[in-house]
Design a protein around this nucleic acid. Structure first.
Length: 259
DNA sequence: TTATATGTTCTTGT
DNA sequence: TACAAGAACATATA
């Protein structure tokens, strides 16, 4: 499921394949995903000029149009972004055709994603109430964010208005590496525990991006590859992993290694 | 057939 | 009033 590392991979894919080429046509196949933008608006804003840069914040990807304005994509639970020159993938919600014959497909299988247009990226982030990006959130700010929070640390890490980018899977991974139980009260974590979580979060995200956000290519020492096994065991101590519902999501954690 | 999975938004509760 | 928790959403898969 697209969390920060996945969206970063999409961003790089768009960067590598779809910049600096004039847009010939835009095809909005699923209008239900449009927010604050019409089919006509997208066409008028993009056709005839290229995209010239990209930006990611949390799970949002922005592509900047050369004549101004940002095309914004949110991938929901089943989104994908394909840059290819052959075939027409199923479930394409938005397709851009470029003048060199290539195209870019924004896929959304379950239609919980979003296509938006904004003149100002930062205004958009503010209106959406998004917190700082998980990769650039400094330690001091992270500690402040925890202060006084009564909910679980897992819920807080998944709350996009607190910190943008983490979803269920990478939150579990972060807390496992920090050695902190997911159901601990966020505001009651020690100074050192907060530091460990912050460090683990950045390490996990950076590593996942380096490995192309491919679940099959994650380190053996991670929980992530074991989530789908029938008898998942802790990569640290080999004890059976616990499953619980925390923050409304299925949570994997180790009773031995996380306190 | 039904339960489950996911991220966000909306609603309800503390 | 702020914060927290849970339901709803769409739909493919087990």
């Amino acid at each position: 499921m697209p969390e920060l590392p996945d969206v970063e991979i999409y961003r790089r894919r768009l960067d590598a394949n779809s910049l600096h080429k004039a847009v010939d046509h835009t095809h909005v196949h699923d209008e239900s995903l449009l927010e604050g933008a019409s089919r006509q608006k997208i066409a008028q804003a993009l056709i005839g000029r290229p995209l010239d840069s990209t930006r990611r914040h949390g799970k949002y990807l922005g592509a900047h149009a050369a004549q101004g304005g940002w095309l914004l994509l949110h991938f929901g639970m089943t989104g994908d972004l394909l840059a290819s020159s052959d075939g027409a993938p199923e479930h394409t919600a938005l397709r851009l055709d470029f003048d060199d014959g290539s195209h870019l497909d924004f896929i959304n299988r379950r239609r919980l994603g979003k296509i938006a247009w904004t003149d100002d990226f930062d205004d958009f982030l503010e209106r959406e109430g998004l917190g700082p990006d998980a990769m650039s959130l400094e330690l001091d700010a992270f500690r402040q964010m925890l202060d006084g929070r009564r909910g679980s640390i897992k819920s807080l890490l998944m709350n996009q208005s607190a910190v943008a980018g983490l979803g269920n899977v990478y939150t579990d991974e972060t807390l496992f590496h920090a050695g902190v139980r997911p159901d601990r009260t966020a505001g009651k974590l020690s100074y050192d525990e907060a530091g460990a979580i912050h460090r683990a979060m950045r390490h996990i995200l950076r590593t996942a991006i380096e490995r192309g956000a491919d679940p099959d290519d994650m380190p053996e020492s991670w929980i992530l590859p074991r989530r789908r096994e029938n008898d998942p065991r802790c990569p640290g101590c080999d004890r059976a992993l616990e499953t619980a519902t925390v923050g409304g999501r299925t949570t994997y954690w180790c009773r031995e290694c996380q306190r």
